[in-house]
Design a binder for these strands. Structure first.
Length: 260
DNA sequence: CTCGACTCCTGTTAGC
DNA sequence: TGCTAACAGGAGTCGA
């Protein structure tokens, strides 16, 4: 599913949609417009405008316009950004691979005939005009031990839940969290404030490396444990049967031997 | 403020 | 073969 890495691919793809006059906006799915954003407002804001910058914080893509408004795109679990009908990602975990027009939830057509659209079969993503950008924590791409220490604070909640809290650390989703925890040998269920300073440093480094390696491999679904995310999955490191546990409402796969 | 539980959303798939 | 129920997880809301 789209996590920080996928949104970064989308951000780069959005570069092809910059500085092109917007001729038409199709935003008829009210459910996909968030926080009071209306189709009329989006059309008024974008009509005749151009996107000037594509920025990313965590899993959110921000498109600035030359009229001053900012458009935010969230991709939920199955959302893709498609510019000029070429999808930068054709294989999205847990999402169908087809390009069905009925899954287009938001579309911008440029005056030159091209387009940029968000395709999201499950409609868990969303579009918002002039969003509050302060609701997100620091971007996880730059994570290091001091940042992770701040993220953890004194919280007693499960460490996995904490690093997935977008208001404290932006960009980590279920797959990146599981892979980082697996690499650092820390159980997802551990109370966040029970990690030693050394463990916090290990986890920060593991997440840092996970982000960079999986970006090179092609996405958050390219983790070392991905192929074992099923019943009967085994740990690639020591062969133990992986535990399947709900943590913070998310399915977590982890090794009961080396993750403690 | 913190944190867990619940809910929404819909295509795919396991299982009968 | 065809159907149903479970499943996937990002994110918002609510209540203790």
């Amino acid at each position: 599913m789209p996590e920080l890495l996928e949104i970064e691919y989308y951000r780069r793809a959005a570069g092809a949609g910059l500085d092109r006059e917007i001729a038409k906006v199709v935003a008829d799915d009210h459910h996909f417009l968030k926080n009071g954003t209306t189709p009329e407002a989006v059309k008024a804001a974008l009509g005749g405008a151009r996107f000037t910058t594509a920025r990313r914080v965590g899993k959110v893509l921000y498109l600035d316009t030359d009229h001053g408004e900012v458009l935010s795109l969230r991709f939920g679990m199955t959302g893709r950004l498609i510019v000029d009908d070429s999808a930068v990602i054709d294989r999205l975990e847990y999402s169908p691979r087809r390009d069905e027009p009925k899954w287009d939830r938001f579309l911008v057509r440029f005056a030159d005939g091209g387009s940029m659209r968000v395709q999201d079969p499950r409609r868990l993503g969303g579009v918002e005009l002039d969003p509050d950008e302060s609701v997100l924590g620091p971007d996880a791409w730059e994570i290091d031990a001091p940042m992770l220490t701040n993220v953890i604070g004194t919280s007693v909640t499960a460490i996995k839940t904490r690093i997935m809290d977008q208001s404290r650390l932006a960009g980590i989703g279920n797959l990146l969290a599981d892979d980082g925890l697996w690499r650092s040998g820390i159980a997802p269920t551990r109370a966040a404030n029970s990690l030693s300073a050394a463990e916090v440093a290990d986890l920060a480094l593991a997440l840092h490396e996970t982000l960079r390696q999986l970006f090179e491999r092609g996405g958050s679904h390219m983790g070392d444990t991905q192929e074992e995310r099923h019943k009967d999955g085994v740990c690639p490191r020591d062969g133990a049967s992986l535990q399947r546990t709900k943590v913070g409402g998310r399915t977590s796969y982890w090794c009961p031997i080396h993750q403690v």
